[in-house]
Design a protein around this nucleic acid. Structure first.
Length: 823
RNA sequence: GGGCGAGUGGCGGAAUUGGCAGACGCGCUGGCUUCAGGUGCCAGUGAGGGCAACCUCGUGGGGGUUCAAGUCCCCCCUCGCCCACCA
């Protein structure tokens, strides 16, 4: 049994890694050709933030992403699979303060560590396209884009209440406030009034919504749903109410049909309007209330169970449809920055208005007829309009849509309102009071005002600040860098000051995928032809945490660049794959739980290939994977098993496969055919299962079939090596070499499928009696319905099941099924 | 409160249009190899019954459509995620 000793032979996982890394670095197989000789494919993965070394999450997303990129290479495409770093940001700045050094020190050291880890991890990146958003050569063009946006009126400055994170000492975009907390550090967000820069995303709201049609079916439904939700389009009307002693005030409503039921009027307590219209008599009460509201955080406001509060402002508004005088209140259940910050309150048809009316004992008039047994509460459903008529128009009896259009037409005719669309989406606040970001290329001049830094003076480079100089003080650390801030006005030459805020890092990441197409381009942010060649990216892989932040901003940037004539598409990412999280023991890995798994230790113990295989085989890529449920040891065992096959092939490389064992050849070709489809539909775990089946079949063929000398065995093992190269590149390379081939297996090409070998010459037909399985027959795929039925009826098990029964009906689906109904 | 998604062996998960439920793997059990452990190899492994051929039940629960339902329809339960005073 010396053969068995041979089978126990194993290869040294780690030594193999070192060996092949050197070979790959020499061959440089994954640099995009970019010469038009092959069809191009752009495989994009969300670039990492350089905090520390790679962790399990990176290992998972990169393993999945690389299956696609490597598959494309095998399919013969010219693949661009670039890597870079989103290298501006707070953690580096905080580390720099703690260590009394420059943020760049921490940042670039981590980048080197991560780059080294990616190389060890065997991801097929094109390293020649590497970029870092904190390099002046990169952020020069971030600044350039900002200026172009500003020229188009899409970047503007305004003084208004903003979200403020007291911990990070900076403002935040709406998208970065989650449940009233800072998305990054979890601190409770407060409000501040500041003059800040915004991108006018709202101008693109409708297009961001409409163009999602192109993404249907290619992006996860939930991401599209989240974006739709975030954009928050609602159709309704603007209606003008006259407020005594003040003038006309417009409200937004989605239910203009209920206008006759408006019995009071509410203004957001923190809106300017409230302070403007309040009477002197009511002012003290109002100001006391406003104080209360200001103290309450968003967290308090989030509780919908909270009783309604408010204060009468001493004035009345006139309902334009019936001339009724209704009282005006200030309340915090109306939001200052949604719609117009004021509403008409229709308690009979709105639950919030109902609660307020009950709390303040205000009248309630039903204008939509609820069902007979409807309880004493707001009726938000549909029914015929009632109590809704004036001398000129009557809605009575109309259903909701008809009543809406009728009253809108009447309002428009009177100049009292109009049909309109409102969005929940707000403009993107991009200023940050932090150091480690892209400087805003604007100079503030006492005589010229806001002056853009001329293009030829870009980039505005960050000064050399470190340590204590970076400590957050509520204003940007840049403001304290006197020499840097003080500058001659580019317009008049007089003394002026630079804008001392930096940009949100999401600005940096809104266009990096374009820069990859021509990373060294110096005449603009990107070479338009290179972008035409590669974009839109065919596949984007990354976490769902960016469902509305990065992905919405990138879509916005792309549309603006399209309008500028710089790109010829409106959506940047054709397809999106959101991988799940790696968790441990049912919970997210965290320091406080102490359930973190160290990637380095896993790689040391099981090797890169087994780790990658474990991630890919765990389940569908979108699902979370629980490390506690997985078996990297099992993966390693499989890889050794696959590798051993290559040692049992005794035929020569290039042997004529057509004479090989047909049964094994059929399994090989079927597997290769299915595996390609499974990769395309992102069912990587099933693809791995199919490779395992082929390995098992090949093992059997060697040990108890035609044997290792049969050319079909060679064909099978070569197919295993090529398919395995998508997941376990080192093992595949080692197998390929043992099979007598030159590196690299990554470019060997996907095996050609012989259609003739996909045709089965026997299929299993199922015979059911009353829908229950009673027999299986091996039949020809070309069998006739009559023959199949006859064979089924003749089966001894079927005969027994039919004993004493009369056959009523027979369903035949040749060649696979017969169902006999009897009774 | 609203929206979306999911519930399949001890576990992760397969089952493309309704047509063999449980592929593949982990774990477990028995055996071979071994001084021994591990590795490796062989066999078994949804539940219940039977010496066996086989039989009955079985995809969260209930109902329905169909010759046939994990898959389609209705109701309910549970879990997950997202949004949440958005007028």
């Amino acid at each position: 049994m010396s053969e068995q000793r041979d089978e126990r032979e194993a290869y040294d996982v780690v030594a193999t890694q070192d060996k092949w890394r050197k070979v790959w670095e020499e061959l440089n197989p994954f640099q995009a050709l970019d010469d038009g000789s092959k069809e191009r494919r752009y495989a994009l993965t969300m670039f990492p933030y350089p905090s520390g070394d790679l962790h399990m999450g990176h290992a998972e997303v990169m393993a999945l992403h690389d299956v696609i990129a490597r598959f494309w290479w095998q399919q013969g495409y010219d693949v661009m699979n670039p890597i870079g770093w989103d290298s501006f940001g707070l953690p580096a700045e905080n580390a720099a303060i703690k260590r009394d050094e420059h943020p760049a020190t921490y940042t670039y050291a981590n980048i080197e560590t991560q780059a080294e880890s990616f190389k060890r991890y065997g991801i097929s990146f094109d390293w020649s396209r590497r970029l870092h958003t904190s390099d002046p050569e990169y952020y020069r063009w971030t600044q350039w884009l900002f200026l172009r946006f500003r020229e188009r009126g899409l970047a503007y400055r305004k003084f208004s209440p903003v979200n403020w994170c007291p911990n990070d000492q900076t403002v935040l975009a709406n998208e970065q406030v989650v449940q009233g907390m800072c998305e990054r550090c979890g601190a409770e967000v407060t409000k501040r009034e500041l003059s800040q820069w915004y991108f006018k995303v709202t101008e693109y709201a409708q297009r961001l919504l409409d163009d999602m049609r192109q993404l249907e079916g290619k992006w996860p439904d939930r991401v599209l749903a989240m974006q739709r939700n975030w954009i928050g389009r609602s159709e309704g009307a603007h209606v003008v109410f006259e407020i005594e002693g003040h003038g006309p005030v417009t409200v937004f409503t989605t239910r203009p049909d209920t206008l006759f039921g408006a019995t009071f009027f509410v203004v957001a307590a923190d809106a300017k309007l409230a302070a403007e219209i309040v009477t002197d008599e009511q002012r003290p009460a109002f100001e006391a209330y406003l104080d209360e509201v200001r103290k309450a955080t968003d967290i308090d406001r989030l509780s919908t169970e909270r009783p309604k509060t408010g204060v009468f402002l001493g004035v009345h508004a006139t309902n334009p449809v019936n001339g009724e005088r209704i009282p005006v209140y200030a309340a915090d259940y109306v939001l200052a920055d949604y719609g117009t910050g004021a509403i008409m309150a229709v308690p009979a048809q709105d639950a919030r208005d109902w609660d307020f009316a009950k709390a303040f004992d205000l009248p309630i008039v039903r204008t939509v007829q609820p069902p007979a047994d409807f309880p004493d509460e707001a009726f938000t459903g549909s029914g015929p309009a009632i109590n809704s008529a004036n001398d000129e128009v009557s809605l009575n009896g109309m259903d909701v849509p008809e009543a809406k259009s009728t009253i809108i037409a009447w309002l428009e005719g009177k100049g009292l309102g109009n049909g309109t669309v409102n969005f929940r989406l707000r403009d993107w606040l991009l200023s940050r009071q932090r150091f480690w970001g892209c400087p805003i290329p604007i100079v503030h001049c006492p005589s010229c005002g806001e002056v853009p830094v001329p293009d030829e003076q870009l980039p505005v480079v960050l000064p050399d600040l470190r340590g204590a100089d970076l400590k957050p003080k509520g204003t940007s650390p840049l403001a304290a860098a006197e020499e840097w801030v003080t500058v001659d006005c580019p317009s008049c030459g007089g003394p002026a000051k630079r804008d001392s805020d930096t940009m949100d890092t999401f600005v940096d990441s809104s266009w990096y995928f374009l820069r990859y197409c021509s990373p060294d381009y110096t005449d603009g942010p990107f070479d338009e032809e290179a972008v035409r060649n590669w974009m839109p990216a065919h596949q984007y892989v990354g976490g769902v945490e960016h469902a509305i932040l990065h992905l919405l901003y990138s879509r916005f940037f792309t549309k603006v660049l399209h309008d500028m004539g710089m790109v010829d598409f409106v959506e940047p990412f054709t397809a999106l794959l959101n991988q799940g999280q790696v968790i441990n023991g049912g919970k997210a890995m965290s320091k406080s739980l102490g359930n973190g798994v160290d990637l380095g230790a896993v790689l040391d113990e099981f090797g890169v290939d087994a780790t990658r295989l474990t991630m890919v085989f765990a389940g569908p890529p979108e699902d979370d994977i629980d490390w506690a449920d997985l078996s990297p040891g099992g993966s390693l065992k499989f890889l050794q098993r696959a590798w051993r096959l290559s040692g049992d092939v005794t035929s020569e490389a290039g042997a004529d496969v057509s004479t090989g064992d047909v049964a094994l050849r059929k399994v090989t070709h079927k597997t290769v055919h299915e595996a390609a489809q499974l990769v395309e539909s992102h069912r990587f775990n099933v693809m791995v299962a199919k490779i395992m089946e082929l390995v098992n079949a090949t093992r059997k063929a060697i040990d108890s079939g035609p044997g290792g000398a049969d050319s079909a065995v060679r064909e099978a093992v070569e197919a295993v090596a090529i398919m395995l190269s998508l997941v376990a590149p080192y093992t595949a390379e080692e197998m390929w070499e043992r099979l007598g081939h030159q590196p690299t297996v990554a470019k060997a090409g996907w095996p050609a499928v012989d259609e003739a070998l996909l045709v089965e010459d026997e299929v299993t037909a199922i015979v059911q009696v009353q829908g229950k399985l009673r027999a299986k027959l091996q039949v020809s795929p070309a069998i006739s319905a009559e023959d199949l039925q006859a064979a089924a009826m003749a089966d001894e098990n079927v005969v027994r099941a039919l004993e004493g029964k009369t056959v009523r009906k027979v369903i035949v689906r040749e060649p696979s099924l017969v169902n006999i109904v009897a009774g």
